[in-house]
Structure formats: structure tokens, C-alpha cells
Design a protein around this nucleic acid. Sequence first.
DNA 1: GTCGTTGCAAAGCCTTTGCAGGGAA
DNA 2: TTCCCTGCAAAGGCTTTGCAACGAC
Lengths: 123, 123
Amino acid sequence: MKRKTSQRNAIQEVFRKIDRPLGINEILEVGRRSVGSLNQATVYRNLKILVEKGWLKKIHTPERGVLYERAGKEHHHHFQCRSCDRLFEITGCAFNEKSSTPPGFITEDHEVYLYGICSSCRQ
Amino acid sequence: MKRKTSQRNAIQEVFRKIDRPLGINEILEVGRRSVGSLNQATVYRNLKILVEKGWLKKIHTPERGVLYERAGKEHHHHFQCRSCDRLFEITGCAFNEKSSTPPGFITEDHEVYLYGICSSCRQ
DNA sequence: GTCGTTGCAAAGCCTTTGCAGGGAA
DNA sequence: TTCCCTGCAAAGGCTTTGCAACGAC
């Protein structure tokens, strides 16, 4: 079915090494340190496979576009710093899904994005 | 500074007529009923102007990309139906910004997206 | 040897931009 | 008459796709 390739492995290594949501360019750049020939199209194709396999999760951030993070983490949300542009994970969830769902609707999932200034930029 | 044009007026009319978040194609299509020559580039340019003027708000939905809605509404969030793909406004907000903000961080704003099945699709 | 995978280039979307003509004030 | 705005076409990003060569099994 799926064959092991050094390319896919390199991409997974990037996520094992850097534990935060990553964009295509960052994945490509870091992945090339392992496999110099690593191609953009290959990265796109493998990200798709890894998302389908449930190994990665695709997240759509309003200000930075599509990013990918390891799947299987505890339910969490994200904080985007408007100063340094980094995306942080926020543990826990203070969102009441039930009380926000309109009558008759069924909520299966939700996402929350916070924007502001992170603690290092605030200094 | 800014001149009145039939094109910009047509775009605003679309939002007065249809009270929900709209994408570029929908705006273009409906706007052309008023101004047949209405061009894509003009729509993009005017949406930008209207956002800067504070008349529109740009929203980035994870599944449908960039949409625009009238600004000045009460704080609210959105519900995306996975069956009919429509985007609904949810009044009120059951999100506790303060308790979700990591120590030392400053949250200026937040967005919430719910996904699920709307009441009409559920029938 | 198979056939999934890769690299490369081309093509597809969506959005922005350059430019000359057109129209509001 | 000004000069902002529009339509058109070209150009820019990002992502996907076709294809021949490659390589895991």
C-alpha cells in the first residue's frame, strides 16, 4: 500500500523535531537538510497522505494560511501573536460547545483562534 | 478622496440585500445584475476599500476561505454546515477569553468556528 | 518486475497589479 | 479639467497534476 521513502520520513522527522504548527516552506526547508532533493510537490503529496493517515492535522489559520501539526494531541486551540507572528498552542479549552449551538443544530467540532501579544513580545 | 461609483454601490447593495457572509464569486455574480460590466479586479479593489472604511469585515473560514460580511454587528461567531456548506451567524459568545489566555499573554481578539449539521440538513 | 513515489514542469485557482481609457466632482 | 476608478490582461502566490524515471518490496 504505502511504501517507506526517505522523503516521507524526512518530513515526519521535521515534525518530530519541531513541535509546533508548520507551514509548507518551513517543512520544505528543514526537510531538505535530510533529503537535499526534496521537492515541493512531494511535500504537498506527503502532507496529504499523512493527514489522511491521521498522523498530521491540517489547520487553517486566518492570518498565516494553512499549517500542519501532529495529530493525536489533546484538544487545544491556538494563539497568534501579532507582533512576532508565531503560533502558540493553548492547552485546555474554555469554550462551551453546547451553549453556543443554535437550537436544532448539531456541533461536531469547533476551532478557536486568539490574537494578541505573546509574553515574550510584551516585555 | 473617494468618489461614488455605480460599481461600488452595486457591491454594497449586494450586502444590503443578502445578509450573510459572502465570497467573491457570489458578490460578483449578484453585483452584475446591477452593473453588467462589473469586473473581478474592481470587486477585489472595492472590498479592500470597504474593509478599510470599516463597512465590511473580512473573515477567513477554514473550509470556505475568505468571506466578507457587514461590519458593526454585535460580537458573534460562525457555524459551518458540513452538509449544505452554508455559513451561519451565531449570536452571543460562550467563550471566556480571559481564562483561555496563557499567563503573560494579552488577548486582543478571538474567533470561533463551529462545524456540524444545521437544523435544515438534519431533518 | 510491479507499481507506488519522486522530481520537474506545466497548469489551475485565487488575488494583485500595470496601464490606458472613462467618468465623478 | 483633474485624477480617482474601472476593465482588461498580465503577473504573482500557492497548490495540484501529468508524465517519465526511480526505487521499495
